[in-house]
Computed example of a mutant assay.
Amino acid sequence: MWSEESVAGRPAWRHVASGVVFREVPGGTFLMGLSDAEADALRAIERDGGFDEDPEPFLAAADTARPVRRVRVEPFLLARHPLTVDQVRHWLPGYEDDYTGDGHGTARLEDDLDELLAALPFRLPSEAEWEYAARAGTTTLTFRGDHRPHEDQVIHAFADPERTAAAENAFGLAAMGSANEICADVWIAGFAGAPSDARPRTGDGLRAVRGGAADVHPWQGCDEWLLLLSATRYAHAGFTAVRPAAPLPPR
């Protein structure tokens, strides 16, 4: 089922049947949520004229990513990038994507989402796993730092090996924050009472979503870059990308 190999100069696990490449995310502990330091960094961007719109509504909504709490994450596998249209077609041969005609482009699923999730031999990452993977050991707004992310950080297709490799973080994961990626957790505003061991929160209702900067590309000057921030979260509505997770294969 798995092939251990090197992809873009880094260790990887390839799911042989589908070709989906996974990276091993090391275990560790991190602070999950929008920290005071990150909120201050956003206000510094505002003072420098880096916001196109009034940032206060976003900062108020950012309370959905609080309180910051320490979370322990066990090692796991996470797909190097969101599933592409061609990769989704491995499980759903008749899949047609309304948002891209490029087989190497990120698949954005709507009516086919439940069917894909039922067919996948993988699971969705929890929100804690997703944010831990996106931060990749950093404590800044994005893994690249506390400055305003530029549009060139967005990547939504993976045919170009060099561009895909350039979009990787320290864990070898590409395009974290570019597509809106659905998580295993049910949407709950805020982290009060959330588990400290990276388990997903379960229940009825919409799922939590992370990322989405590429879904509004080209940017229209409405602070779409905020969707790249590691702590940005919201409830699923409409289409979504899928970046599957899996347990470590036996060695």
Rank of each mutant, 00 (worst) to 15 (best):
G238T: 09
D63M: 10
L228D: 06
I155F: 11
E129Q: 14
L83W: 01
G190L: 11
V71P: 01
D146S: 09
L120Y: 00
A166D: 14
Q153I: 12
A214K: 00
A231W: 01
L78V: 13
R14S: 11
E38F: 08
Y234A: 04
R123A: 14
S126T: 05
E4G: 03
L83I: 06
G211D: 00
V25Q: 02
S230R: 04
T138C: 04
E4R: 09
Y95W: 15
L226P: 03
R47D: 15
A37K: 13
S196H: 13
A107L: 00
S230C: 12
A231D: 02
F76Q: 05
P93D: 15
L124F: 13
A119H: 10
A61G: 15
T142C: 10
A245C: 13
E224G: 14
R80D: 11
L141F: 12
M32V: 02
G211S: 00
A37T: 13
W2H: 05
A237K: 13
W219P: 03
E115S: 14
R144W: 14
P125A: 10
V154L: 00
L117T: 01
D97Y: 11
L116A: 11
P26G: 01
H15A: 07
G221A: 11
V21N: 01
G193E: 03
A165R: 09
Q87V: 10
W91D: 07
G28I: 13
P125R: 07
P57G: 10
A231G: 05
F158W: 06
S230W: 07
A170M: 05
R163V: 00
